[in-house]
Design a protein around this nucleic acid. Sequence first.
DNA 1: ATGATTATGATAGTTGAACTATCATAATTT
DNA 2: AAATTATGATAGTTCAACTATCATAATCAT
Lengths: 208, 208
Amino acid sequence: MSKRQQNKEERIQLIIQEAERLFLENGFEKIQMQDIADAAGIGVATLFRYFPKKDQLIVAAAVKNLQPTLERFEQFLNEKGNAYERLEAILHHFFEMQLERTNHARFREAFESYASFVATPLPGIETYIDVQRQIMQTLEPLIEDGKRDGSFRSDIDVKVTVVTIINTFGTFGNNIMLKSHISYLEDDIEPEVQLRALKEMLLASIQA
Amino acid sequence: MSKRQQNKEERIQLIIQEAERLFLENGFEKIQMQDIADAAGIGVATLFRYFPKKDQLIVAAAVKNLQPTLERFEQFLNEKGNAYERLEAILHHFFEMQLERTNHARFREAFESYASFVATPLPGIETYIDVQRQIMQTLEPLIEDGKRDGSFRSDIDVKVTVVTIINTFGTFGNNIMLKSHISYLEDDIEPEVQLRALKEMLLASIQA
DNA sequence: ATGATTATGATAGTTGAACTATCATAATTT
DNA sequence: AAATTATGATAGTTCAACTATCATAATCAT
């Protein structure tokens, strides 16, 4: 690869990284292209050369935001134990990840909300969808194993179960963050308590 | 009430109604104050006299959007049957409501996302929170009854359970809508199937 | 090495939408 | 019917995304 090409790649990565960082804290409405250019240490005209539409940058940041979830899920593919134990481990891990990275979960929700309202699909959204799909597919064999080895109910549908797990656990960012802004309940429930309840609910509902 | 006052009230309600309708289909980014003024048949300057900030109108629309959920939930307060049966009925009803009103669910998510990112709390957000709280409080006695009459597990926490139910069922709009735009999975899961799985999961996880 | 090519960033300009100001006219009130 | 208040058209301001231009700097090809 030529030096020019390499610089370009590095710069794109830097831009996406800074954009993600800024979006995570502030959402995409509040962050201006100027802010991102400043954070990446480049001129705004240069930023626009790389990402002619803010939307493209938002999608790129959303994909980057999703990547770690896929990577960590994949690490659980070859764990030992029966399916129930492995699912428990993965849920526990997911649980901790959501707690650590509440901003990431919130960002994901904001992005999906945003994406769902556009008239024409966002440019590059297929990449995002694809990572989503890969995440789901990581869980599928686990559920199948569980049905086979008898640790899960045999009447559950694999795909539906996977989607339920991801949706239930995944869409928790807003709630946590909203509650930190403005509390839903007089005596607030800790995110940790809430997530634990979700985990237990999921496990209880599919175990044989 | 003077005629002036009355016209004012009616007009405010009309504006909120039209704003909600437009936001539901298009999100708040896409809809301009001009569009709302046109829909309500008034001048944009007049619209700004009633709602000097678009944010205020967004909040008003969000509150209006949440109201029917509360009203319908309240209807279930005095039903017959044991707690399990009543919860099943209410979940079934919630389930159908979410299916009928996917746009409402999506709007709610978009709003909460939006609200969670603002620097200073949205003007009027307390009203919204309050309706949320009332919805939760409607379910609390039901869970308590169930613990008492033995149809629910005795070790569940009332508030946590209520929040879990609302969150799990409530944050389903994006997923449905996103999937209608861009499908997550090759062979798509019907929203109805997905919601039924959620309902069963919830019931299975708290029944004694 | 050096001339050709391409990338950069500063600057100025365009566009679109939220929001403000003004004011003549119309609807209420007294 | 005179005084008060509400309306909506119009023009203007501001701010951020986006475009255009261009002098300068970095890379590349020979």
